[in-house]
Simulated assay, not measured.
Amino acid sequence: MARKGHRPSKAPTAHPRFYGRHAVLAALDNPERTVRKIWGTREALGGLDIPASIPITFADVADLGRLVPGDAPHQGLVIEVDPLEDIWLGDLLQQGADDQRPLVVLDQVTDPHNVGAVLRSAAAFDALGIITQDRHSPPESGSLARSASGTLETVPWVRVVNLARALEEIAEAHFWRIGLTGHAESTLGEVMGKGRIALVLGAEGEGMRQNTETHCDQLAKLPISDKVESLNVSNAAAVALYAIAARG
C-alpha cells in the first residue's frame, strides 16, 4: 500500500547538541535516538547508565558552556545526536485509528521555544502527535529539546511538504479539523463535539494562512478576556488540548 503524507528526505545537517538534564536523559532513554557523544561534569554523569558505545568526555562547567549557545542552562550535561527518523503521516493516523486522541497541526510556527512548549502540552494531554510543514518549522535543536522538556523523544512529530494536502488526509481519517483563530464567531467548546479532533493553530501575529483556514471544517476561538488580544500559540494549544481532554 502506498504511503501518503510522508516527510521528505532530510538534507545533510549538522548534528544538534542537546543540553539540560530532562532533554539529555530522555534522549538516552529513547531507543530510536542515536546519541553520538556526551560531555558532562563528573557530578552530573555520576550514576547515569550510559551505553559503552557512546564516547564520554568529562568537562567542567566552563568547558560545557562553550559547547552550547550563550548562557544556555546545560545543568552539567551536553550530548550530540542524530535527528530522529522521519515519520509518515499515514502511519501516525493508522496508529490512532481506534482512539480519540487529538492531533495538533501547526501552520508555519517557526519559533523553537513555542514548538517545544507545544510538544510538552501534547504529551501532557496525550495527543496523538504534532504535524508541521517541513520548510516552515524549526529543526531539532538544543533550545527546542529543552523547551520540550524530554517530550521531543516521546511525541510523534510529522513534517509534511504540503500542509493543505496533509489536512485532506487527516479529514479522510475522520478527524474534525478545528482552526483556532480570534476572528471566529464560535468558541471551541461550542464546536468540538465528541469525535476525533485535529487542532490547527497558526503562527503568532500572522495566524493561519487563508488556504489553511479553508482546509478546516470549523473555525473557533478561545473565550479569553478582552483584556488581552490573544494568547501565545503554545499557551493556546495547552488550553485547547485541556478543553478537548476534559469534554464530557
Rank of each mutant, 00 (worst) to 15 (best):
residue 170 I to Y: 00
residue 199 L to F: 07
residue 214 T to S: 13
residue 105 V to S: 05
residue 96 G to M: 09
residue 119 L to Q: 10
residue 33 R to F: 10
residue 31 P to D: 09
residue 90 G to A: 06
residue 161 V to S: 06
residue 109 V to P: 07
residue 155 V to Q: 06
residue 147 S to A: 14
residue 88 W to M: 02
residue 230 S to E: 11
residue 41 T to N: 05
residue 227 K to V: 12
residue 78 V to G: 07
residue 234 S to L: 09
residue 76 G to M: 09
residue 115 V to A: 05
residue 64 L to S: 01
residue 200 V to Q: 04
residue 72 A to L: 11
residue 187 T to V: 09
residue 92 L to P: 01
residue 160 V to Y: 09
residue 42 R to H: 12
residue 155 V to S: 00
residue 227 K to I: 10
residue 239 V to D: 02
residue 23 A to I: 00
residue 27 A to D: 02
residue 159 R to N: 07
residue 100 Q to D: 11
residue 33 R to A: 11
residue 168 E to R: 11
residue 211 N to W: 12
residue 179 G to K: 04
residue 181 T to V: 09
residue 99 D to H: 13
residue 7 R to F: 00
residue 182 G to K: 03
residue 86 D to Q: 06
residue 163 L to K: 06
residue 188 L to P: 08
residue 128 L to S: 08
residue 247 R to G: 10
residue 109 V to W: 08
residue 171 A to T: 15
residue 152 L to I: 13
residue 87 I to Y: 07
residue 181 T to E: 13
residue 191 V to Y: 12
residue 10 K to E: 00
residue 247 R to Q: 10
residue 240 A to T: 14
residue 61 V to D: 15
residue 126 D to T: 07
residue 76 G to F: 13
residue 69 P to T: 04
residue 80 E to T: 14
residue 169 E to C: 03
residue 13 T to S: 15
residue 17 R to Y: 08
residue 51 P to Y: 08
residue 15 H to R: 06
residue 157 W to E: 05
residue 103 L to S: 11
residue 233 V to I: 14
residue 50 I to S: 06
residue 224 I to R: 14
residue 63 D to K: 01
residue 121 S to T: 13
residue 120 R to I: 03
residue 133 Q to D: 09
residue 7 R to D: 10
residue 1 M to W: 03
residue 78 V to I: 10
residue 26 A to W: 00
residue 236 A to Q: 02
residue 60 D to Q: 10
residue 214 T to N: 12
residue 244 I to Q: 03
residue 194 K to G: 05
residue 198 A to F: 00
residue 189 G to F: 03
residue 32 E to R: 13
residue 100 Q to H: 14
residue 141 S to L: 01
residue 136 H to C: 02
residue 244 I to P: 03
residue 232 N to S: 13
residue 238 A to F: 05
residue 140 E to I: 06
residue 217 D to W: 06
residue 139 P to W: 01
residue 241 L to S: 08
residue 50 I to P: 06
residue 197 I to A: 00
residue 164 A to T: 14
